[in-house]
Simulated scan of single mutants.
Amino acid sequence: MTTTAMLRAFCDAVEQRNGKAFADLFTEDGLYHDVFYGAFEGREKIAAMVDDWFYRTATDFRWDMHDPVTDGTTLYARYTFSYRSTLPEAGGARAMFEGVAIMTLRDGKIVSYHEVANTAPAFVDLKFGPERIAKIVGKQGAELKARPEMTRHLV
């Protein structure tokens, strides 16, 4: 599968709420680290992340990858991501943010996925107040502090 085809299958699986197809893009012990929900390890948990976690408070996902660069082992792609929130305070608003996907590959499968994203526009779109934003950012900071290996790609 070409890089472009893999990235399209990746995005399509999320947009179609097809956790199995999404997880099948990963190795058995694959790791997906989501900017909002944290780490999911193994195909079963990765599939549940899409089917249950993503769609628990959102719908109508749109995900596009842009300008992929790979050496066959590491893949970087800029992305745009949006969804319609079902959280009560969001009032059905569409949230959008941009980021960079960082994937480690082996034998045509994703071993690990990490992302760096500017989530601030999504918080504004969702009408989150300062207290809610502080709680989210604090949780992410605590997770990174507890798991420093998650930041090794940022150095």
Rank of each mutant, 00 (worst) to 15 (best):
K135V: 02
P68F: 06
P88I: 01
A117H: 03
A142W: 03
V50R: 15
V111N: 02
E89D: 06
H33E: 14
K145N: 10
F97N: 01
G30R: 15
E115I: 04
T73V: 03
N118V: 05
E44T: 09
I102F: 02
T3S: 05
D29Y: 04
Y32I: 06
R8K: 13
M150S: 12
K127P: 01
F123Q: 08
P148R: 12
M103R: 03
P121W: 05
T27D: 07
Y113M: 01
H66R: 13
T27F: 06
Y79D: 12
V100T: 09
A90T: 03
D107A: 07
A47T: 10
W63L: 11
F81H: 13
Q16C: 13
R62W: 11
R94P: 01
V69M: 06
L126P: 03
R132H: 06
T86A: 01
D51M: 03
M150L: 15
G108C: 09
K109C: 00
A39T: 10
F128W: 14
N118C: 04
M1F: 07
K20N: 08
C11Q: 11
L105E: 14
E28F: 05
G19D: 05
T80W: 04
G30Q: 15
E28Q: 10
G99C: 07
G91I: 02
T4W: 00
I136T: 09
V14S: 09
H153N: 10
N18W: 01
F97K: 00
R17P: 03
L31G: 01
I133H: 10
T70R: 06
Y76S: 12
A77R: 15
D34K: 05
T80P: 02
A77C: 11
S112Y: 02
D125R: 00
V69L: 08
W63P: 00
V111I: 00
T57E: 11
K135G: 00
T57K: 00
G30W: 14
F54T: 04
